[in-house]
Design a protein around this nucleic acid. Structure first.
Length: 425
RNA sequence: CGGGGCGUGGUGUAACGGCUAACAUGCUUGACUUGGGAUCAAGUGACUCCGGGUUCGAAUCCCGGCGCCCCGACCA
């Protein structure tokens, strides 16, 4: 798209009430708008990135048998009373409201109960299992303190996958598959290196649960990292575990980290409470074994910015960047820059690249600064200078590497540059 | 929810209880420019968060409300 058509503006300074790097850069670049504390709207650029993230998540979920559903935000009190989680004593971050006739409703902070209840319509026999529905939608939590920009809000996008299995063995097989799917997701969004499978307290049904923690000073959690095994132990259980659960090493590195995903064994907690059962091949009634697997796409977005930016702005990984290429036109009217840029735009787009064309009537410095701030992986500059040499300038946002490429090779080289970095991500 | 800090043009800041609330940036117009937010000129833009109070006089002091940030507690 043409940058002159983009209604959002970049700004030099972040609002003073934003301290976190993720919100500062995302606001300065025009990706998000703060509505109130802990509540952010996505602007066009933010939507582009968020869609990239959710597409990756969907692909990986579908690959392991996930089936997407879309559940309601308004929640039925009666369903939650069955599991005992309607009470404010059990769950203190409910947003609750009511109908005109005073019937109480909740705004979903999670969806175990309604989904389990819904699945009763579809699970009768062992032949109906296993099944893996998932959802990507807004959750509401009345946090006593929103903080860290978009990392901990009161309204946020969440992906939750739920597994319904015949027995513990079947559940555990799937649980391991999710671990791999999650690793794929974090690698694809550019956080693979810094994200650790982390052992954490498990609740009532298993000794441990697993979190995925990304190392960043903006994180709220403390983890003990085993570099050798690329796993970590959450501080909350480290006193008891004392070592790497995989190699037994006791000298672990203490890091601040943010929880970007978690996988949970739910056992039969919800299936029993909501009477979700099936008949086995012998005709006997059995409890369904459940698991839940969350990733917060919004928190992921914040974490990417938090960990992959530099002093000049954001550095988007290839797969989540709002555009593949930032085509910057420096047109002084002396040589036909515009015609050339338009041709590259058409050619690149025709070959499948998404391109943001900076066609604004602005000075080079402003355009370069904006380009760095927006963080599109590849910048192509066309100016009088490059025109006179019959080349364009390609600059890699991440490495800073600059190459001059003859006009006839621009499309090929630009597209392959993207693929290269994708493979090494 | 406990503690602390803060609310001034769109944004970032300044202003002893006392002149027309200042500066930068943004935005508009023009000039000159065209490879890292250049320069010059002229404009635009604020009931100083809201409501009370003290005072001859309040952005400034006091009370209440609302909002925002930070630390802690909490976080399926």
């Amino acid at each position: 798209m043409k940058q002159s058509n983009l209604f959002t503006k970049t700004r030099r300074e972040a609002p003073k009430d934003e301290v976190s790097k993720n919100a500062q850069l995302l606001i300065r670049g025009g990706f998000i708008h703060k509505e109130m504390a802990g509540v952010y709207s996505l602007l066009p650029l933010g939507v582009l990135v968020m869609n990239k993230i959710t597409v990756i998540i969907r692909e990986e979920m579908n690959k392991i048998g996930g089936q997407e559903v879309f559940l309601t935000a308004l929640q039925d009190k009666a369903v939650w009373e069955k599991s005992g989680r309607w009470s404010d004593k059990e769950v203190d971050n409910w947003f609750k409201t009511s109908l005109k006739n005073n019937t109480e409703l909740g705004l979903g902070f999670t969806h175990e109960e309604p989904l389990t209840n819904l699945m009763r319509d579809h699970i009768r026999s062992f032949r109906d299992l296993p099944v893996y529905p998932y959802q990507i939608q807004t959750k509401f939590r009345n946090e006593t303190r929103a903080k860290s920009g978009i990392m901990r809000g009161r309204e946020f996008l969440m992906k939750d996958l739920y597994s319904f299995s015949k027995d513990v063995a079947e559940h555990e097989t799937f649980y391991e598959k999710v671990k791999i799917a999650y690793k794929n997701i974090f690698a694809r969004v550019g956080l693979g290196e810094k994200t650790y499978l982390t052992y954490a307290s498990g609740g009532s049904f298993s000794k441990y649960s697993h979190e995925f923690q990304t190392i960043t000073s903006a994180g709220e959690d403390t983890i003990h990292v085993c570099e050798k095994c690329h796993v970590a132990v959450n501080d909350e259980i480290f006193a008891e575990m004392k070592k790497c659960p995989e190699c037994g090493a006791t000298e672990l590195k203490v890091e601040k980290a943010v929880e970007v995903g978690n996988i949970f064994n739910l056992g039969t907690r919800f299936s029993d409470a909501l009477e979700l059962s099936y008949l086995d091949s012998a005709g006997a009634k059995q409890s369904v074994v459940m698991g839940s697997y969350g990733i917060g796409p919004g928190r992921l977005l914040g974490t990417i910015v938090e960990t992959l930016s530099d002093d000049n702005g954001i550095i988007w990984p290839e797969e989540v960047a709002p555009f593949d290429i930032h085509l910057v036109s420096l047109d002084n009217g002396k040589v036909p820059v515009k015609e050339t840029v338009d041709r590259f735009y058409a050619d690149l787009t025709a070959n499948g690249a998404s391109v943001l064309l900076d066609d604004r009537d602005a000075r080079a410095g402003e355009k370069f600064n904006d380009s760095d701030l927006l963080g599109i992986p590849l910048r192509i500059v066309v100016s009088e200078k490059t025109m006179n040499e019959g080349v364009v300038e390609l600059k890699n946002r991440k490495t800073g590497e600059v190459r001059r490429v003859p006009h006839h090779q621009v499309v090929d080289i630009s597209l392959s540059t993207g693929e290269d970095s994708e493979n090494t991500a």
